[in-house]
């Protein structure tokens, strides 16, 4: 019996795809359809029959969209790079320890990860205040690092564990120091886990609200994009918010589409299994 795709599948696919695309669709309509067809009427238009760039242009003129995006970019890159800086050595070290110890360490990291963000963010912001880190890019990044570090360590550890054990021994015997063994042999071999860990950290930071909100509260000149967006939303600026939301989401959409295969792979669920 040849397995033929039943038409029922396509109905399910269509329904699910519409449900999952609709919120994005709403943002697109608000951002690109003249306001008289959206906010000007009782029930906004559902199809972008008339398109304008005026909303977007006005939004850029009226509120600061670029500043928060740049800060978010800075934060996300600091978070991603710091995650690798701390996570690559940690992942290597933990991979080398006996399984008994390394499993305990990983479990510990993930249990910490379960602590409620608000519970931790509040005292952190008090610490940071005395360190002059509140309302700074670095402060937000340092707080968000906490969210991404356990998964980063786990992904990197998995990468090191999957390498043949004798590879680094061979490099050492071939005359490489510990440093050049890392740089020339090991790191190139775990570049995919490194990339995945970086992307996930980057994306988590780009999206993160709680820590950013507490550590860099609503000060328009200091907050990241999610906090600024919240600010615009709560000030009832839907047009500017929609533009902002879309612009901030475009890079994420591209990243998810490009790196889909890694997200589907063992890295994500593997990380959560740990």
């Amino acid at each position: 019996m040849p397995s033929k795709t039943s038409p029922g599948i396509y109905v399910a696919v269509l329904i699910l795809a519409v449900i999952f695309f609709y919120p994005l669709w709403v943002l697109i309509i608000i951002a690109f359809v003249p306001t008289k067809y959206t906010f000007g009427v009782m029930y906004p238009i559902q199809l972008p029959l008339i398109i304008t760039l005026q909303n977007v242009i006005n939004s850029f003129r009226e509120v600061d969209l670029v500043g928060p995006m740049i800060r978010s970019l800075e934060v996300a890159f600091i978070v991603g790079l710091l995650a690798l800086g701390l996570g690559v050595p940690a992942g290597y070290g933990i991979a080398k320890l006996t399984a008994r110890i390394s499993n305990k360490l990983i479990a510990f990291l993930f249990i910490i990860n379960m602590m409620p963000g608000l519970v931790i963010a509040i005292p952190i912001s008090l610490y940071f205040y005395s360190l002059h880190l509140t309302n700074t890019v670095l402060g937000v990044a340092l707080a968000q690092e906490l969210v991404v570090l356990p998964l980063t360590v786990f992904i990197i550890m998995g990468g090191f564990r999957s390498l043949p054990r004798d590879l680094e021994n061979q490099a050492r015997v071939d005359g490489a120091s510990l440093g050049s063994t890392f740089v020339r042999v090991l790191i190139p071999l775990i570049r995919v886990p490194i990339l995945v860990a970086f992307i996930l950290s980057w994306m988590t930071s780009w999206d993160e609200f709680t820590y950013a909100f507490i550590v860099a509260p609503i000060v328009p000149t200091h907050s990241t994009f999610p906090v600024t967006l919240y600010n615009y939303v709560s000030r009832n600026l839907p047009l500017q918010s929609a533009t902002f939301a879309l612009i901030a989401t475009v890079p994420i959409i591209i990243m998810v589409a490009v790196f889909q295969k890694y997200l589907k792979g063992q890295y994500l669920s593997g990380g959560l299994v740990g």
Binding site: D166, N169, Q170, A171, R172, V173, G175, A176, L178, L189
Partner: peptide
């Protein structure tokens, strides 16, 4: 001495070739 300071060459059973 660390391995890189022993001036010894070694061939591992599974060859341990650098796959990249």
């Amino acid at each position: 001495n660390p391995p890189n300071k022993r001036d010894i060459a070694m061939v591992f059973q599974n060859y341990a070739l650098y796959p990249n």
